[in-house]
C-alpha cells in the first residue's frame, strides 16, 4: 500500500480487498453507506485493520490512508 499515492483531498484504502479512493475525513459510517447499507442495517459489521469497530464508534472513527476495511454481512452458511 503506497502511502501518498492518493490525489489531494483523498486517501487510498483497501475496501473489501479492492483498492479504493475515499475523501479525507471519511468515517466508518460513511463507508458502510458507500457499501450499500443503511446506517441501522442489522447483520453488518466492520473491521478496520483486522479489528472490529463497534457500531457505536462508526460515526466517530475516521479512516486513514492505507487502511484495510472489511464491511461484512450475513450470508447463508454453516
Amino acid at each position: 500500500m503506497s502511502s501518498g499515492s492518493a490525489p489531494e483531498g483523498q486517501i487510498a484504502v483497501h475496501l473489501n480487498g479492492a483498492p479504493t479512493l475515499l475523501a479525507t475525513d471519511t468515517t466508518v459510517a460513511d463507508v458502510v453507506g458507500l457499501a450499500g447499507f443503511a446506517p441501522e442495517a442489522r447483520g453488518v459489521a466492520v473491521a478496520l485493520d483486522g479489528d472490529v469497530v463497534p457500531r457505536a464508534d462508526w460515526t466517530t472513527t475516521t479512516v486513514r490512508e492505507g487502511a484495510r476495511l472489511e464491511v461484512l454481512t450475513a450470508v447463508a452458511g454453516g
Binding site: N16, G17, A35, G36, F37, G43, A45, E70, V71, L72, T73, A74, V75, A76, G77, G78
Partner: peptide, 8 residues
C-alpha cells in the same frame, strides 16, 4: 446458523 462475508 449464519456466516459473515463481504457483501456480494
Amino acid at each position: 446458523t449464519v456466516a459473515l462475508r463481504r457483501l456480494d
